[in-house]
Design a protein around this nucleic acid. Structure first.
Lengths: 362, 362
DNA sequence: TGATCATGCAGAAACGTGACTGTCAACGCG
DNA sequence: CGCGTTGACAGTCACGTTTCTGCATGATCA
């Protein structure tokens, strides 16, 4: 009886099922499943035969059925917190793009695929995709999506230290305090007397930690803080804030910009005010963009190593999914890298155009 | 009997099934399914009651079971052809990033989610995810992944005209010939006598169509072609090729760069040779990056409108998935936009820094 | 008043796979 | 020669939905 049904289904065009393979190979579906998955105890001859028949029929196991049966989908969510009405700022900064690329690669290398899901997307989309776990980039405090996912028992790993008591499974981040302090010391070493800070307002911890570190440094060295903050989701506000910072009566002679576009904006503002870089103004900004190697002059940047972050986040998440080293709370810190260029070196006033850099390995 | 089993399963922590909702609401699972999906014929009272109970239990339908039953997963693949050993060049150019962002937004607006899948990824990953259809960016001729997907009966829509007889369901692209001809005319109008072309070597149709259009234009106006090609996947090769182009004995007095980084590379090369832009060299490049608005001087760019492309591709694909207007072969052409800046205007030699541009709507 | 019909819901069959249990033959050993 | 053991498979259930079919109940109509 079940044989008759099998042949009836097999007549459906397009897809061959495991039953069709079993019938064509003259074995049971159990044998087919065991042969293809490397389980059970079968002689190699049978195993090879089944594989061959499966290949000939172009058999592809149904991902949905396998997911339903095993409870594992092989899918990882990649969530970006959104600002404003644009569904997400996915590629506003090169950081996100690089990080997403590395995360995708790392996931694929371990047999997982990435699904892009904005945090504020429609609820039906979230519940329509079976996820094994989720990566959350820069979660804001009390993120409802994170809570919901954790409540469902899914592992959640965040890129960026979670704010408050956000119940993530693990997190990966840079040591932002150390990075800011290092940059400020670097600028002071280059001769800066009054260092300003350009920063966006965000709800994650990056801005908060960096600003706090800046204020602490100012207090330590006895400098009055000089900083401008602007809504990070507004693409124009950054340029305006850069202008405002250089127009202040207590104009800084060095500026660190916390966000990617700040370097370009500050450079343009400096030109408007006739300030030479680095002679009149030292410049550093946090960016992953390679354009700062070719600007006039080249601008010193802080790299947060998004590729290493993306890779680490995915590995930690997959480890959690597969139950590896789940005993220790995972909080991984990735070092930053300061790429020193002309804009922050007052000692070497030559404005040589640096040769094209070869891509870094990480 | 089945009741007893239901309660036994319901004791499992973490997830409430449809049976638990049915038991708690005192109805059958059919009624629950119909009430939540808006089907069947139920009085509003029952519908509300079931929804309320489901909410109270935190019921989330299993995506895997739904996919298995309905045959629709709500997932769309986003495939990027890869070069070299890096899994994919996803964000090499701002084009991909913008396009992917728009595609994700458009998909989410229609209830679908995007899965990023490189074309050359491990076969097990491809077969492990249930896709309703796929978007392929710049497929090369005889792409094996495309053939396999089409053979499975999945709709495949490509961004970029498919080469040869690649059997895609539909495609969306710009009119690259018209764009190149327009730029060459624009440069000639600005006074260019010998226009060069800087181009990468790729296996998709973009490079081929653009180069062909350039050669035809040269033939028409009686100019000897002056162009340099370099392997597009090598991040250094572009700068070297730009240098080579300006070092030629028949140095062009205007250059169009087909790829995003060409503008920066050409500008750096021009500085090395002491060429002033636009006085000695007119420059245009194809890019979506906003940095070209702030370079010194600002560079004229051709925008391929990746947001509109990404949106269109997804809409065409989802229409095909849902069986809408499947009768007509869909080949959609998106217009390009030339953003004229200082680098291509010899008449206005002032090098004003342009004010920050507001974001475009598309 | 009996036949027809819309309404409100329950039962059960799939969807395609993985895993557990069971069967039958061959074989080694006392 | 009988018995336990092991290899090589087949049968069958369950994963959690959706959906088709079907059975009651009350209302409507000739």
């Amino acid at each position: 009886m079940s044989r008759a049904e099998t042949s009836r289904r097999g007549s459906r065009p397009g897809r061959a099922g495991i039953r069709d393979v079993a019938a064509a190979a003259g074995v049971s579906i159990t044998t087919v499943s065991d042969a293809l998955n490397g389980k059970g105890r079968l002689p190699d001859a049978t195993r090879r035969h089944v594989r061959e028949v499966a290949d000939r029929l172009g058999y592809r196991p149904s991902a949905a059925a396998r997911t339903l049966r095993t409870g594992k989908s092989g899918l990882i969510g990649l969530t970006v917190t959104t600002y404003g009405d644009e569904p997400f700022t996915f590629t506003e900064f090169a950081y996100f793009a690089e990080m997403a690329r590395a995360a995708t690669s790392a996931a694929l290398a371990r047999g997982y695929a990435l699904v892009i899901l904005p945090a504020t997307s429609r609820h039906d989309v979230w519940s329509n995709v079976a996820l094994d776990g989720t990566v959350v980039i820069d979660p804001s405090d009390h993120d409802p999506v994170v809570s919901e996912l954790v409540r469902q028992g899914l592992p959640v790993v965040s890129d960026g230290r979670p704010a408050g008591s956000l119940p993530v499974t693990a997190w990966v981040d840079n040591d932002h305090e150390a990075a800011v302090l290092g940059i400020l010391d670097h600028l002071a070493d280059a001769g800066a007397r009054r260092i300003g800070l350009l920063t966006g307002t965000t709800t994650d911890t990056y801005t908060h930690l960096s600003t706090t570190a800046y204020l602490r440094w100012c207090e330590r060295v006895g400098q009055d803080p000089v900083y401008e903050a602007y809504p990070a989701h507004d693409p124009c506000a950054g340029a305006v804030a850069a202008d405002r910072l250089l127009a202040r009566p207590d104009r800084p002679d060095a500026v660190y910009g916390l966000f990617d576009p700040n370097g370009t904006d500050l450079l343009a503002a400096a030109r408007r005010y006739g300030l030479r870089v680095p002679e009149d103004l030292l410049l550093v900004c946090c960016s992953e963009s390679t354009v700062y190697a070719s600007t006039e002059p080249p601008i010193t940047t802080l790299s947060l190593k998004p590729r290493r972050i993306g890779t680490a986040v995915v590995h930690v998440l997959i480890d959690a999914i597969e139950g590896l080293h789940s005993d220790q709370p995972v909080e991984q810190v990735i070092p930053t890298e300061l790429i020193v260029r002309t804009s922050s070196q007052r000692r070497s006033p030559r404005t040589t155009v640096s040769p094209p850099r070869s891509p870094e390995s990480d």
